[in-house]
Design a protein around this nucleic acid. Structure first.
Length: 376
RNA sequence: GUGCGAUUAGUUCAGUUGGUAGAGCACCAGAUUGUGGUUCUGGGUGUCGUGGGUUCGAGCCCCACAUCGCACC
């Protein structure tokens, strides 16, 4: 796997690049739709490719391990074949899910002991078995096992948490080097920079993680309760620390405005449940602002969903129709909203790429952030 | 026709010894950041079937009427 920087913006940290994988090239900056359990909820794979323009999607180790199981994944020949997706897949390690979902968890030097949120059964993720599991899934990009430190943690807690993440990373990298891909194509892994909102810890974490980074590196533990300004500060701090030849992945972020601000601070890759989860609950992101489709004001608005939208749903259906579907509790509502939001997110990063290439990204970004954060 | 029961928010219902009304759902808003097809927060939207009566005061007690349900002729 190889990352090539194509262009760097003169007035901001924004960059364009190409990440070459066994399942095709990824043009950065990029947004990666989240497909936790082997599907981007409510969206056909052919729509992801042709209508939305997704170049890579996510899977989740925690959910696939608990819900599907390793035997079936292995028998299926890996996640690509199982879910019929021939472009790249990135899998999260499950460290975040243990932090956000498991009712009981215990972090030990050995690994992370947790109970399933589904049936309460006990499990352990170690760096070693986490590598093995992501090998079985067959992700193009595997994520290191880390502890996602809460945004409001004390320096003392963050210090200890980082030490654990660092030791897990060392073992993860060692085991990765000793194992082979199972399905005949290259897999790569990204280490994760933690350190909460503390500059000294973030820099230390970055320097340590860089020792294990090949094509790319991830920034984790942000957008987990800390103020957005703190997140931007951390990105500004890390931007000069990470070499230009590494792809930078900001995990779990965010709103369309977060994407543009992240790109301006040197981030190349994003993923977030927001376009799909919030979409399923009626929120639409557009170039003209944010709409809550459940609002009564759309009841008699028969104009097309989004005049500026790139998806077919934007022109096939009206605002009043989508509101009706949401109020009626129709599955189709979530499908249309997810399709629209993902198409918009991918359009945002495509437009960002275009403006970086053309050299006017910084100005365009400032104007655009104002526009897309309006409430309609 | 007679007897009994019911009638309170959009809906299903609660409402104490009489002190001008509450809950669930729905509805109206807001939140949601490495997805549990969610979850959380806020908002009561009312001619208490109608008309009289008793009372300082009636959703509640009394009378009549209306409508619905059940039972019996």
């Amino acid at each position: 796997m190889k990352f090539t920087l194509e262009k760097k913006d003169a007035r901001s940290g924004a960059r364009c690049g190409v990440l070459e994988t066994a399942h095709g090239n990824i043009h950065t900056p990029i947004f990666m739709p989240v497909g936790t359990v082997g599907s981007v909820k409510g969206v056909y794979h052919c729509h992801l490719k042709e209508d939305i323009g997704a170049e890579i999607i996510l899977g989740n180790t925690y959910h696939l391990y608990l819900r599907l199981g390793l035997d079936i994944l292995r028998a299926a020949g890996g996640l690509h074949k199982f879910e019929s997706w021939d472009r790249p897949i990135l899998t999260d390690s499950g460290g975040f899910q243990v932090f956000s979902l498991s009712p009981i968890r215990k972090l030990t030097p050995e690994g992370c002991i947790f109970r399933s949120h589904i049936d309460g059964s006990r499990h352990i993720f170690t760096p070693e078995n986490n590598v093995d599991t992501q090998r079985i899934i067959g992700a193009d990009i595997m994520m290191a096992l880390d502890e996602c430190c809460p945004g409001d943690a004390t320096h003392d807690y963050a210090r200890k948490s980082l030490d654990l993440t660092k030791s897990w990373l060392e073992r993860y990298a060692a085991h990765f080097a000793q194992t082979e891909p199972l399905y005949g194509y290259e897999q790569s892994f990204f280490p994760i920079i933690q350190g909460c909102v503390y500059p000294d810890l973030r820099v230390e974490a970055a320097e340590h993680a860089l020792e294990y980074a090949s094509a790319g590196i991830a920034i984790g533990g942000l957008a987990v309760g800390e103020p957005t300004e703190k997140m931007y500060e951390m990105l500004e701090l890390l931007n000069p620390v990470i070499p230009q030849d590494k792809a930078r992945y900001l995990m779990g972020v965010g709103t369309p405005a977060n994407l543009l601000e992240g790109i301006a601070r040197g981030v190349d890759m994003f993923d977030c449940v927001m376009p799909t989860r919030n979409g399923r609950n009626g929120m639409l992101f557009t170039w003209n602002g944010i709409m809550n489709m459940r609002n009564a004001k759309w009841e008699n608005d028969f104009s097309e969903l989004d005049p500026c939208g790139t998806s077919f749903v934007d022109h096939a259906y009206s605002k009043a129709y989508l509101r009706h579907l949401f109020i009626a509790g129709e599955l189709f509502a979530g499908m249309i909203a997810s399709e629209h939001n993902l198409a918009f997110y991918l359009d945002v990063v495509r437009q960002a790429r275009k403006h970086i290439m053309e050299g006017d990204f910084a100005q365009w970004k400032d104007e655009t952030v104002k526009r897309i954060t309006a409430r309609l």
